[in-house]
Simulated scan of single mutants.
Amino acid sequence: MNILDKIIERKKQEIADAKSKISIEKLKDSEFFGRSTFSLRETIKTKSGIIAEFKRQSPSKGIINDQVSPLEVVSQYEKFGAIAVSILTDKDFFGGSFDDVLSVRNHINIPILRKDFMIDEYQFYEAKSIGADVILLIASCLSPIQVSEFTELAHSLDLEVLLEIHSKDELKYINKNVDFVGINNRNLKDFKVDLQHSVDLKNQLPNDILSVAESGIYNEEDFKFLKEKGFEGFLMGEYFMKNENPGQKFGEFISNVTV
């Protein structure tokens, strides 16, 4: 069993526990469920194109930074020009929580991507209830039919969909309704990074699809390389989070790549 399989098995238990405690109807009564969402589609081609991530830890890196608060970090991300923020909500493997989203929702005015392993419709109501604007669908966790059905559900809740793929075989998961296709530079099964693999895969995407380069962007050269290859968006987290002041590091990065 690889790490992705372990995560999914744990996620199934987590969802079952959540359903037993809070119904979908109860989620609909939450403070943020009725709010109008921010659109990433409208901003992805503006400013930096960077979706800056708040991430405490990962299965491959262990603890990255557990000494800073979400609000402190994402406020600076917004200040320095992030088009959106990504916040991990998986607890066991990434050290995240719903509180990380809830604590910042009223303080920033850019989209929030709830980054998690979405395998059940219940999670989409959770995402809406905590104030998310975009959700991530990971092809390797789902079937093409699930991607289509989950995309429809997300849109019915006014949530946009970032579909993540990693291989040529997963191109069949793309449907005309997904808002963006993310190409993960890091293989979720063995965590190896290959930027050229992502570029090759991007060249096989439909011409009208918005593309996001995800993970494994470790320096300014990586960013510029991927931007030159035509990616519209860039999901980056570890590069900033491994620093004592992630928001400030993001600001320095923006200054260097937009000169």
Rank of each mutant, 00 (worst) to 15 (best):
Asp120Thr: 14
Leu163His: 10
Asn187Trp: 09
Ile44Met: 09
Glu9Trp: 14
Phe191Gly: 00
Glu25Asn: 15
Gln204Met: 10
Ile7Gly: 01
Arg41Lys: 15
Thr43Asp: 10
Arg41Thr: 14
Lys192Leu: 05
Asn2Ala: 10
Lys19Gly: 07
Tyr239Ser: 05
Gly96Asn: 12
Glu121Ile: 11
Asp120Asn: 14
Ile63Glu: 13
Ala154Glu: 08
Asp17Gln: 15
Asp133Lys: 10
Gln204Ala: 00
Ser20Thr: 15
Ile44Asn: 03
Gln57Pro: 13
Asp194Ser: 13
Asn106Val: 02
Lys249Leu: 00
Asp208Glu: 14
Leu162Ile: 07
Leu226Thr: 03
Gly233Met: 01
Ser198Thr: 01
Lys249Glu: 09
Gly96Leu: 10
Thr151His: 07
Asp222Val: 05
Ser48Tyr: 04
Ser23Thr: 14
Ser58Ala: 10
Leu201Ala: 03
Glu214Val: 02
Asn245Phe: 06
Ser167Gly: 09
Thr46Lys: 15
Glu53Lys: 04
Ser255Pro: 11
Ser167Trp: 14
Lys168Met: 05
Glu152Met: 04
Leu171Gly: 10
His166Lys: 10
Lys55His: 11
Ile145Lys: 13
Glu164Pro: 08
Glu126His: 02
Gly62Leu: 11
Phe38Gln: 02
Ser60Asn: 10
Val147Met: 03
Lys28Ala: 05
Lys21Asp: 03
Asp5His: 12
Lys55Ser: 05
Pro246Val: 02
Ile7Gln: 08
Lys128Met: 08
Ile254Pro: 05
Ser140Ile: 13
Ala213Cys: 02
Gly49Ile: 04
Gly233Asp: 01
Ile112Met: 06
Gln76Ala: 12
Phe234Asn: 02
Ser97Lys: 13
Arg41Ile: 13
Phe250Met: 06
Lys45Gly: 10
Val101Lys: 05
Gly95Glu: 09
Phe32Tyr: 15
Val257Arg: 07
Gln204Phe: 02
Gly34Met: 04
Ala84Leu: 12
Ser86Gly: 09
Phe98Ile: 07
Ile63Cys: 01
Val212Glu: 06
Glu214Thr: 01
Ile183Ala: 01
Phe250Glu: 01
Leu171Trp: 12
Asp194Arg: 14
Leu137Gln: 05
Ser167Gln: 14
Ile108Gly: 04
Asn207Met: 04
Leu205Ile: 04
Gly131Arg: 07
Glu72Ser: 15
Pro206Asp: 01
Ile87Tyr: 06
Lys242Asp: 00
Gln123Glu: 05
Lys6Pro: 12
Cys141Ile: 03
Ser148Cys: 01
Ser211Arg: 04
Ser60Pro: 06
Lys11Arg: 15
Pro206Ser: 02
Gln76Thr: 12
Ile8Gln: 05
